[in-house]
Design a protein around this nucleic acid. Sequence first.
DNA 1: TGATGTGTTCTGCT
DNA 2: AAGCAGAACACATC
Length: 284
Amino acid sequence: MPELPEVETVVRGLRKTVVGKTIRRVKVQAPASSIVVSPSLDGLVFDQCLKGRTIDSVTRRGKNILIDLSGDVTLWVHLKMTGKFQYVDTTEPMDRHHLVLFDFKVSSHRRSAKQLRFRDPRRFGRLRLYRDDELWNQPGLVDLGPEPFEMSPEDFVSLFRSSHRMVKPALLDQTFLAGLGNIYADESLYLARIHPRRITSSLSRKKLTELLGHIQDVLDKAIGLMGTTVYTFSGVFRRTGNFQNYLVVYAKEGQPCGRCGALIVRQRIGSRSAHFCPRCQRIR
DNA sequence: TGATGTGTTCTGCT
DNA sequence: AAGCAGAACACATC
């Protein structure tokens, strides 16, 4: 479940591996509902539209990955829950969940050819191609809330004063604040000792300043640790980052709170699960 | 075989 | 209008 730190980690990985490279060939392996091509791109199919373009830069907005290509086109990627990029040797084994393969033009002295692969077992992820001039009109990008790292405490306070809703669903709402998902929302609320059902507009200036600080700290620490990828697969967690070692409430239902010893609870709030300490995070 | 769980976004209701 | 619940997405597991 990639959230901001995991997406940032992927973006940094792409910068190290594919920026500056020119796409030689794209293979769409599976009949992919995962792919969208803007109608304005002259009816070109995905692979034909990408062929020959150079990857100029890779950036992140919320949980969205923006791959800026030559010729005023952007490949906009959302990993959703299980989407993943892998930069691997072409000889690495593949399975039916490898949906798209990208081959690059490489200098001839390079020994083994590497390939960028998009794999997504659940196929919720999306790869979309848009002309740069239409990209930011698209729903999903145009309506995103602010980036947590770009907010001052004053911005954060006025944002919270502008709505009257439970804080947990608000933090998950990408049009309210971009980048947080269930893990970092729960962790930040715990650190700030805020009950997930508290109403956004009822929180004090001081509490909100603390919350913003914790959100920024948690995201920053998670980015430093290359994210947390807690991926539910037959009830077993598979990790790709290291932040899961520092989780204090997420997936800790029934375990004692590190501050007060009360048992962490899991409740359905806003039709999503919320993990919190019933003693440290009071509704009041 | 069918129910369930998973996060995000979309739709539709109040 | 704003905020909520529920659906849909696709697949694996029980």
